[in-house]
């Protein structure tokens, strides 16, 4: 900078040509700079479907009137149809009165066959590429609950293997959920029936909830999810299994589109051993109520000190 403060000599002809060279250079810099800027942003032309005015202006789930929600559901159905050539049935099912869902998993029954993982993927329209699953099954050597000794990638010919037990983990639908507390935009919250849901249209994708979850239950769409047309489940719910977009969180929601219609979750129905049990804890006649009263029930060992009060229990019956 100091050098530029020498008083310029503007009288000689040589200086004039230098000045014009300078002007040409400056002009060229400005022009090529703009060209580089434009070219640098060129990848963005593939972004045409990133968002739409309708989606951009959409209000928070809690502030949508019934008519607005109807329009939103129509938009979703339209988008799904465009992408998958399939008219989905999109609903916004509300929690039922007097219902609080609880899940219990019998560790002495689970054989680690991972059918729950894939039934969940199919039911909830999870991306096949890149693949994304809500349920993790950890193979644990008998005699420990130290998860660092677990194996997530076991692939023997047959399960169960001697000397191991299997521990499926998914969202625990905590009564004191750390993920809800940390969300900066209230895109995730706990519903009256105990399900912690995500409004995919409101999530900004900061992944703070993912860092906060002590159960590794939340998943992020690092890329645009891809589902084969023939595997799309057309029975959809706004807070549940409607197709997600790139850059938002998702997680287990107890198959909200099924359970709020009275049905069992998909992971439960596919479980060949009946290790998975689900129901309304407020109903004294429900099997889940019976299990919590009669069985040796515990919440996720080593994680109880998190104070999250899960609605997902493990139990043993022999």
């Amino acid at each position: 900078m100091s050098a530029s403060e020498n008083k310029p000599d503007s009288s000689s002809g040589g200086s004039m040509s230098r000045r014009s060279f300078l002007r040409v250079s400056a002009g060229a810099t400005a022009l090529t700079g703009l060209a580089a800027l434009a070219a640098g942003l060129a990848p963005l032309r593939e972004l045409s479907r990133f968002t739409s005015v309708e989606k951009f202006l959409q209000k928070h789930y809690h502030e949508l009137s019934p008519e607005q929600m109807k329009r939103v559901l129509e938009r979703i159905a339209r988008e799904v149809e465009q992408q998958y050539d399939l008219r989905p049935h999109v609903r916004d099912l509300k929690p039922m009165d007097g219902v609080e869902f609880v899940y219990a998993l019998n560790l002495s029954r689970c054989i680690g066959c991972r059918r729950c993982v894939h039934a969940c993927v199919a039911e909830n329209n999870q991306s096949g590429d890149p693949d994304l699953e809500y349920i993790r099954v950890v193979k644990m050597p008998k005699g420990t609950f130290d998860l660092t000794k677990g194996d997530h990638n076991y692939e023997p010919e047959e399960v169960p293997e001697d000397g191991y037990f299997y521990m499926p983990v998914q969202c625990h639908q905590c009564a004191n959920p750390p993920c809800v507390k940390v969300c900066p935009v209230e895109a995730t919250w706990q519903e009256a029936d105990g399900i912690t849901v995500i409004d995919y249209d409101w999530c900004i994708g900061c992944r703070y909830c993912q860092a906060a979850c002590p159960y590794f239950a939340r998943r992020f769409n690092f890329r645009k999810p891809r589902i084969p047309k023939e595997r799309l489940n057309p029975d959809m719910s706004y807070l549940g299994n409607r197709p997600r977009e790139s850059g938002v969180m998702e997680k287990c929601h107890f198959c909200i589109q099924r359970t709020r219609a009275g049905r069992y979750p998909a992971c439960l129905e596919v479980c060949p051993t009946g290790a998975r049990k689900f129901g309304n804890i407020l109903d004294p006649d429900s099997e889940i109520n019976y299990i919590l009263k009669e069985k040796r029930v515990f919440t996720f060992i080593l994680k109880e000190d998190q104070g999250t009060l899960p609605r997902f229990f493990y139990y043993l019956d022999k």
Binding site: F50, H60, K181, V182, P184, V185, I204, C206, Y208, S246
Partner: peptide, 30 residues
């Protein structure tokens, strides 16, 4: 750096009180 870390920077206004829903004082990010 925070903006490039967001999955959906197009929804930045969800953080603006009034327009969006800033979870203040609950969230440390807020």
């Amino acid at each position: 750096f925070v903006t490039v870390d967001l999955g959906r920077p197009d929804k930045f206004m969800h953080m603006i009180p009034g327009l969006g829903k800033l979870n203040f004082p609950g969230s440390m990010l807020a």
